[in-house]
């Protein structure tokens, strides 16, 4: 089970692993952007109570929230090629990275759909009525009244999902993606210093989480700039 613990190796491993941070962030970035798009589309049937579509979206969200990300990853990785095989399209040479991005996008989409729905429904219907009263069109009402307020409400949850998603990327290596974690696994194979590798990885993940958290905090303060003090003080 590995060799004796060597503290200096941690400092040596961190620069090697950080080189692969780009792949981790790439997975994160694309899965969040695609996830937001899926979330927007999936939130519509629930907000406007469109029959059948609403039930389908409910099942989709329930399934994503009901299964571990690793199972979703395996289902996409083994399921998508099988699905495309029916149409005689061969996916066996596609890079595992794309399967990871698709899985995380589908997973984030369900979570974003719930966040968007909650945020939009949280806005008092009196606001919409007031907007119509002063002669705004539905699209103006959405752009100028609903969206800015919904964004403010949804923002802390979006921040949490992004951080959760970053932590989930640490499982992408299970289907053979060479991200930070994947590089860590090869380092373990070549040096047999597993503990040091995992400590180095933890330090990097922790640093990134702190950075993302602070970016979101600054922007959250910006979004709350029109809030009266007693509300933002809570």
């Amino acid at each position: 089970m590995g060799k004796a613990f060597d503290f200096t190796l941690i400092l040596e491993f961190i620069p090697t692993l950080v080189k692969y941070l780009g792949i981790t962030l790439e997975i994160l970035f694309f899965s969040i952007i695609l996830g937001i798009l899926i979330g927007l589309v999936a939130a519509i049937p629930k907000i406007f109570k469109i029959p059948i579509l609403k039930q389908l979206v409910t099942i989709y969200i329930s399934f994503i929230r009901g299964t571990p990300i690793i199972i979703q990853l395996f289902l996409v990785y083994y399921g998508l090629p099988a699905l495309f095989n029916l149409f005689h399209i061969d996916l066996s040479r596609v890079d595992a990275l794309y399967f990871v991005i698709i899985t995380y996008a589908i997973s984030n989409g369900a979570i974003f759909a719930e966040i968007f729905r909650g945020a939009i429904l949280a806005i008092n219907s009196g606001q919409t009525e007031a907007a119509y009263t002063i002669g705004m069109t539905p699209s103006q009402n959405f752009r100028r009244i609903i969206f800015p307020q919904a964004l403010r409400i949804a923002f802390p949850n979006i921040g949490n999902s992004v951080i959760g998603s970053l932590k989930d990327t640490s499982l992408a290596f299970t289907i053979g993606v060479m991200d930070m974690m994947g590089r860590g696994e090869t380092l373990i194979a070549s040096t047999a210093h597993a503990l040091e590798v995992y400590i180095s990885l933890s330090i990097i993940y922790y640093a990134i989480v702190i950075i993302i958290e602070n970016i979101f905090k600054v922007y959250e303060r910006y979004l709350n700039r029109y809030q009266p003090d007693e509300i933002s003080a809570v």
Binding site: L171, S202, V209
Partner: peptide
């Protein structure tokens, strides 16, 4: 720290670290 790092790290660090 524990909220800021993936759970797989906690499992791996204990799994490899504690026996040492």
């Amino acid at each position: 720290f524990f909220r800021g790092t993936p759970a797989i790290m906690h499992i791996m660090i204990i799994y490899f670290g504690l026996p040492i």
